[in-house]
């Protein structure tokens, strides 16, 4: 048996062990990326093989958070894909403005960069006071970081450029205090944010949302799991509610996708179709 085949067996056992020992279900993740991350963990933790990693994960309780962090990679940026945030500001917010109370669910919020980005946009649009943001992620460590809102200062330049390109009206510096190495987002920005653990693979509907952002999370899922997450979004959205995915995501393979009509195709902003004739349009 050659190395890649052995590798697949070890991967399967690792995923099973993670599920049986700790209850975390990665069985429906897209294999190529998951395997890559597992191998990175094997290297970082200096285990010789995936089986070596499995053993440590089973026997050393302290390993679990480390493994989860390695498997989820909470990587994000402020105002990533500025054109998408510009579209939110110019096209979606004016429609949300008609609701007396706005609920936004941000699924897979990682270290929170997008949460603060959204809060800033809402603030500038005068909508933040009546908005509630639910920011969720699988990883409680990531959520902890998200609530702190502290990031490496070296990101500031790129993020400011993104903010301007997203139609920012002020200066990003107005929203954070920057030191030599770190910058901290103004904590007033999270006054209407609730951080909570939620797993898109296993948990259910928990709110009624006018807008859901779930960017660059479903790319790690198999078609089956992508479909599950999309049905969760469908069931969580109000009539004609909005869904934003990452700019390179493709939902054509998902049967549930027909519940959504493109609102801005290039920015991957969709709207829940309320009637079948909406779909036909």
């Amino acid at each position: 048996m050659d190395a890649p085949e052995l590798d697949s067996i070890e991967m399967e056992l690792f995923v099973q062990a993670l599920q049986k020992r700790h209850g975390h279900d990665f069985t429906q993740y897209a294999p190529a990326s998951l395997k890559r991350r597992v191998h990175l963990l094997v290297d970082q933790l200096e285990c010789k093989t995936i089986t070596g990693l499995t053993e440590r994960m089973l026997h050393e309780p302290a390993m679990l958070p480390r493994v989860l962090e390695g498997l989820t990679v909470p990587m994000s940026d402020m105002f990533r894909d500025p054109a998408m945030f510009l579209a939110l500001r110019e096209q979606v917010f004016p429609l949300l403005a008609s609701y007396p109370q706005i609920n936004i669910w941000q699924a897979g919020c990682a270290h929170g960069q997008e949460v603060y980005s959204l809060a800033i946009l809402l603030e500038e649009a005068g909508l933040y006071e009546r908005t509630q943001i639910f920011a969720t992620d699988l990883s409680d460590r990531a959520l902890q970081r998200a609530s702190e809102g502290i990031y490496p200062a070296q990101e500031a330049q790129q993020w400011s450029r993104n903010y301007q390109a997203a139609g920012g009206r002020r200066s990003l510096a107005d929203y954070c205090s920057a030191g030599y190495k770190l910058l901290k987002l103004n904590q007033r920005l999270r006054r209407n944010v609730t951080f909570a653990v939620h797993n898109l693979a296993t948990d259910g509907v928990f709110c009624e949302a006018h807008l859901i952002l779930c960017r660059n999370v479903l790319i790690y899922f198999s078609n089956t799991l992508q479909n599950r997450a999309l049905s969760l979004f469908r069931d969580s959205l109000v009539r004609a509610g909005f869904l934003c995915l990452g700019v390179r995501e493709n939902i054509d393979r998902s049967p549930i996708a027909q519940a959504f009509v493109p609102f801005s195709e290039p920015q991957r902003i969709y709207r829940l179709a309320s009637h079948l004739d909406d779909i036909a349009e």
Binding site: A30, V73, M75, I219, G246
Partner: peptide, 14 residues
């Protein structure tokens, strides 16, 4: 990335 079933996958990893 390429999956073993010959479909493409994307990753936003660092």
């Amino acid at each position: 990335l390429v999956e073993s079933d010959l479909h493409f996958a994307l990753s936003a990893d660092p």
